[in-house]
C-alpha cells in the first residue's frame, strides 16, 4: 500500500538508501508490488553500506533527486491467483529511469513474484531470490 509520503527502502546499488513516494504512476489507487511510482531520494547510502562492495556503490543518485521506481516488496498482503498470500516485513523499491531500465546494476534482497506478471524481467533477473 504505497501512497504519497510512504517511505521505502531502496535495495539496488544506485546509491539511494531511503526514498519517499511522491506519486503513483498510472493509477489512482495505492501502489502494490510491480507498480511504478515516482520517488524523492531522502537518504544516500554511505561508503560503508552493508552488503555492497565499494566499486558497485557508485553514487548515481543524490539526496533530493526525483526518480521513477518499481515497488518490489510491500508490508501489505498481496494475494495470488491460487489463493496464497505473501507479505514482507518492509516496503522496498528499485530505482529505474523513464525508459524502465534499472538505474543500479545489482539488486540485493528478495523481490515479489508479482514482478513477473507485470513484466519487470530485468529486475527479476538481477534479484538473488524471489518469493
Amino acid at each position: 500500500m504505497i501512497q504519497l509520503k510512504s517511505m521505502l527502502n531502496c535495495i539496488d546499488n544506485s546509491g539511494a538508501a531511503m526514498v519517499e513516494c511522491v506519486m503513483v504512476v498510472g493509477q489512482k489507487k495505492h501502489a502494490s508490488i510491480g507498480d511504478r511510482i515516482v520517488v524523492v531520494v531522502q537518504k544516500q547510502r554511505g561508503a560503508a553500506a552493508e552488503g555492497m562492495s565499494a566499486a558497485s556503490t557508485a553514487v548515481k543518485v543524490k539526496r533530493g533527486d526525483i526518480r521513477h521506481a518499481v515497488v518490489v516488496r510491500t508490508r501489505q498482503m498481496v494475494s495470488r491467483r491460487d489463493g496464497s498470500v505473501v507479505r514482507f516485513d518492509d516496503n522496498a523499491c528499485v530505482l529505474i529511469n523513464k525508459a524502465g531500465d534499472p538505474v543500479g546494476t545489482r539488486v540485493n534482497g528478495i523481490v515479489g513474484q508479482e514482478l513477473r506478471k507485470k513484466k519487470w524481467s530485468k529486475i527479476l533477473s538481477m534479484a538473488p531470490m524471489q518469493a
Binding site: 516488496r73 498482503m77 491460487d82 489463493g83 496464497s84 498470500v85 505473501v86 507479505r87 514482507f88 516485513d89 518492509d90 522496498a92 540485493n108 534482497g109 528478495i110 538473488p128 531470490m129 518469493a131
Partner: peptide, 26 residues
Amino acid sequence: IDTAILLRNHLAKVGVEMWYKIYNKN
C-alpha cells in the same frame, strides 16, 4: 475447504510471511 496456514521465515534478512490453502492442488 478454505482452511489455510500462515508460515513465517526470513529470506535474505527480510521477514516473509505466506498464507497457503492446505487443500490447494498447487
